[in-house]
C-alpha cells in the first residue's frame, strides 16, 4: 500500500502561521484589483500548492514560505484575471513567471479535477479524502462516516471512485484531457 503522507504537525503549524498573513495577502491582492472573496480562494489555493509542493521529492524552499505563497497568489491571480479578460494592471516578475512550470500546470489541472469532484455526495467525498488524503484505514473511515464496517466502506469506495470518474469525464473543464 502506497502510504499517502499525512500532513505533518509542522505543516499544520506552518499553515496557521501562514494564514495569519491573510490580511497582508488580501491587501496585496486588493492592490491588483482582486475582490475579497476571490482573494481568499486564491490564497487558499496558494496554500494548497505550498503544502503539495513541500511533498515533492527534492523540493527545497529557496524563499520564505510567505513570499512563496505570495508569489503563487500573484501568479494565480494573473492567470485568473487574464482568463476573465480583465485589464491587467500589473506585470509578473521573471521569477514569478518562472514558477509556472510543468508541475504548476499539472496542479492547475488537478484543481479542476478536485472541483469536479465536489459534485460527489458528502459521504463519498469524505471517504475518498480520508482514504487518499489522510491515509486512514477502512475500519476507522467506516466508523467516522457512519458505515457498518470496513467491507461496506470498501465497496462504497469503489462506487465513489466510479462516480468520481463519471464526474471528471463529464465535466467540460476536465474531460478534454482524458
Amino acid at each position: 500500500m502506497t502510504a499517502v503522507p499525512k500532513p505533518t504537525v509542522s505543516s499544520e503549524t506552518d499553515l496557521r502561521t501562514l494564514y495569519r498573513k491573510w490580511p497582508d495577502i488580501r491587501q496585496f491582492l486588493k492592490g491588483m484589483g482582486c475582490s475579497k472573496d476571490e482573494a481568499e480562494d486564491i490564497f487558499q489555493e496558494a496554500l494548497v500548492i505550498f503544502v503539495r509542493k513541500q511533498e515533492e521529492p527534492g523540493f527545497v524552499l529557496t524563499v520564505e514560505p510567505f513570499f512563496y505563497v505570495r508569489n503563487t497568489c500573484k501568479l494565480l491571480w494573473y492567470n485568473q484575471s487574464r482568463k476573465q479578460n480583465r485589464q491587467q494592471t500589473f506585470a509578473l516578475e521573471t521569477d514569478v513567471a518562472a514558477m509556472q512550470d510543468e508541475w504548476f500546470e499539472k496542479e492547475q489541472r488537478l484543481r479542476k479535477v478536485e472541483k469536479a469532484m465536489q459534485g460527489l455526495g458528502k459521504q463519498c467525498r469524505e471517504l475518498l479524502e480520508l482514504f487518499y488524503g489522510a491515509g486512514q484505514n477502512m475500519v476507522d473511515i467506516a466508523k467516522k462516516i457512519g458505515l457498518r464496517n470496513d467491507k461496506v466502506a470498501k465497496a462504497q469506495k469503489y462506487r465513489c471512485l466510479q462516480k468520481a470518474k463519471e464526474l471528471v469525464l463529464n465535466d467540460p473543464q476536465t474531460h478534454v484531457e482524458f
Partner: peptide
C-alpha cells in the same frame, strides 16, 4: 484513476487549509 486519487488528496488538503 491516479488523477482522482490525487484529486481526493488535494481535496483533503484543501479542507485542511
Amino acid at each position: 484513476q491516479k488523477t482522482i486519487h490525487e484529486g481526493a488528496k488535494r481535496s483533503f488538503q484543501r479542507q485542511t487549509v
